[in-house]
Design a protein around this nucleic acid. Structure first.
Length: 566
RNA sequence: GCACUCAUAGCUCAGCUGGAUAGAGCAUCGCCCUUCUAAGGCGAGGGUCUUAGGUUCGAAUCCUAAUGGGUGUACCA
């Protein structure tokens, strides 16, 4: 239900009928319940342009507002606010209408776009660590969200499978055994360390490693086979993490760095032809206005850098994948890099003007002391270990409730533990750094996944107790139900906002508001207790049904599972 | 040095395309379980929105500067 759109159309009409010219009509949520459900604050601005009394204008506008459908009442307040109340009858019928809708009333975008979402991007030389968590989670949510709203989403996992370190790794792989499949690569981190030790201790080995780098680049079959087997094994680790994490990335989404190798020379050629790049200190550079240091696109020795790869990728995404919008879900520290790459791509005409390029940046994960998240001995925290710990902790949290058999407990602990990690990450505004705290994320209180899952389970419990059919319509009976129904219908507006700004926390905030409201409703308005009229009981059961559906759908978009019992 | 970014309650965070008395959670202190999952709900206290200017009828929000954190800055990605 696009409520704001409907309301702004009504206001636009009112303005038109009152012969008042206004360019954009913005409807906001009311700041307080006393001020209604929505408000239109644009009158004050109009009054200034027209040099008229704002309350006078507000009065004229109000007289022209159509209050036959969605709007029940409007009021002028303060210097010229127009407060809007939606009608209970309208809310009731709209809510009832979406009870059986799989999309719980959420429509599709008017103009579907082809959107590339670039996320996760692990390095094949190392095990996935906490640094990859946010990109994977935020990117996955964004992809799911856009897809749900009707865009055509192309997921791209830009894995790091190329670079000098691979020479060392495959040389060591060869020395150790035959290939990545038979080789024990369970702990990539350790393998890397061991290889590094070999590299440092043996000149002979180091030479071979360097030689292998060149050989892979030249397409040497033996080295390429070793390299490929290594990448396969490493990718297998990532998939294990994706599986645990519930991230929808498959091999089909992998478009590795190496994929662009063959396209790099042509990028340089384009830049040279358009006089965008010049030679400086022996390297091919682009000097952008305002930057004091250049962007190097080709090293003095002929090698390419990641800016070049990103340019090639951009070109590919626009020209081959035909993207309208490209979202890079990458650490905020890369802001400058993306700004530069985007600028060069547009200058060089690799990307048409109407294609939107977005760096979806996010902050760093911190520990309690406010420092970047590390293990006790200062090492990186492996993602797989973190996820396993989350499940263990979740199990401890719910074990004492004794609602589950051992087997069921395991499943529920997984949903809760993984959900907690993801929700904690998604509920913080993306750009800011975030403090990682087990206690906070696994709490039943506050804006956590467990609180949402608990609310969902609580509703399921009502249904079990009721143990019968639920029919009939939703009839808004009081203030709290009015607010709850309105909240349920606001779901689409929330998703639209989240998709435009690429802010998953918009969804979690909404969820928290919705669930809090439901809890209030649940305390105030008994459903199954004695003496409740059948019609009221059914309406409330339906309200619970719709609430549960919206919670489930919202969590689904966030990649979090619900459980029927906690 | 230069650039970017952040600064809101004791703590963790919302709010930021300008709007009415700045909101949550945690923590602290009260109240509500023979009554649908109380791991819940209700209420209280707690704020110079870092500081100083500016724009405006109106600023936490926009602009400028200062202060304090973080980050990035020529051949790694």
């Amino acid at each position: 239900m696009k409520i704001k759109l409907q309301l702004s159309k009504i206001i636009e009409n009112a303005l038109k009928n009152a012969n008042i010219e206004a360019d954009d009509v913005v409807i906001s949520d009311a700041t307080k319940p006393e001020f209604g459900d929505y408000q239109f604050n644009g009158v004050m601005k109009l009054a200034k342009q027209l040099k008229q009394n704002p309350r006078q204008i507000a009065q004229t506008v109000v007289e022209h507002i159509d209050t036959t459908g969605i709007i029940a009442k409007v009021e002028i307040a303060g210097p010229g606010f127009i407060n809007i109340w939606l009608g209970d009858a309208w809310l009731s019928s709209e809510a009832t209408a979406i009870l059986d809708d799989e999309r719980v009333g959420v429509g599709y975008v008017d103009q579907a776009q082809k959107v590339v979402v670039d996320y996760s991007g692990p390095n094949m030389a190392k095990q996935m660590h906490v640094g990859h968590l946010r990109s994977s989670i935020i990117g996955d949510t964004l992809a799911t969200l856009l897809e749900f709203l009707g865009d055509e989403v192309i997921r791209q996992n830009h894995i790091g499978d190329w670079g000098t370190q691979f020479g060392m790794l495959i040389a060591y792989l060869e020395e150790q055994g035959t290939d990545g499949v038979t080789q024990n690569l369970k702990d990539l981190e350790q393998f890397y360390k061991d290889a590094k030790v070999r590299f440092d201790e043996s000149v002979e080995f180091a030479d071979k490693a360097r030689d292998y780098v060149v050989k892979i680049q030249q397409g040497d079959k033996h080295c390429l086979r070793l390299w490929q087997s290594f990448i396969d094994a490493s990718l297998g680790h990532c998939e294990e993490v994706y599986d645990k994490l519930g991230v929808n990335l498959t091999r089909d989404d992998v478009r590795a760095e190496s994929f662009y190798n063959s396209k790099l020379p042509s990028v340089i050629k384009t830049l040279k032809e358009k006089n965008i790049s010049t030679i400086s200190d022996g390297a091919e550079c682009v000097f952008l206005e305002g930057d004091e240091t250049p962007i190097i696109v080709q090293k003095g020795d002929g090698g390419f850098l990641y800016a070049t790869t990103d340019l090639a990728a951009l070109e590919f995404r626009v020209q081959e994948l035909k993207a309208d919008r490209i979202c890079y879900v990458v650490d905020a520290r890369q802001a400058q890099h993306f700004k530069q790459v985007f600028a060069i791509a547009k200058m060089a005409g690799m990307v048409a003007e109407n294609v939107t390029l977005e760096h979806i940046g996010f902050g760093t994960m911190m520990d309690k002391s406010g420092k970047p998240f590390k293990t006790r001995d200062g090492g990186v925290v492996k993602l797989i270990d973190l996820l396993d710990e989350a499940v263990v902790r979740a199990r401890e949290t719910i074990k004492e409730r004794k609602t589950h058999s051992d087997e069921a407990l395991e499943k529920v602990a997984r949903a809760i533990g993984i959900g907690a990690v993801k929700y904690a990450d998604l509920s913080i505004s993306r750009e800011s750094n975030y403090l990682f705290s087990w206690d906070k994320m696994l709490s039943f209180d506050g804006n956590t996944s467990l609180y949402m899952q608990y609310a969902y389970a609580r509703i399921q419990s009502i249904f079990r107790k009721h143990d019968g059919v639920i029919t009939g319509s939703i009839v808004v009976g009081d203030e709290i139900e009015h607010r709850l129904v309105l909240m349920l219908l606001k779901f689409e507006d929330t998703l639209i906002k989240a998709s435009i700004e690429a802010t998953p926390h918009t969804i979690t905030s909404y969820l928290y508001d919705l669930v809090s409201l439901f809890m209030k409703f649940y305390e105030q308005n008994p459903i199954l207790k004695e003496g409740i009229e059948e019609e009221v009981k059914m309406s409330r059961l339906q309200l619970a049904t719709l609430t549960a559906k919206v919670i489930k759908k919202a969590l689904d978009i966030l990649g979090i599972e619900v459980v029927n019992k906690i």
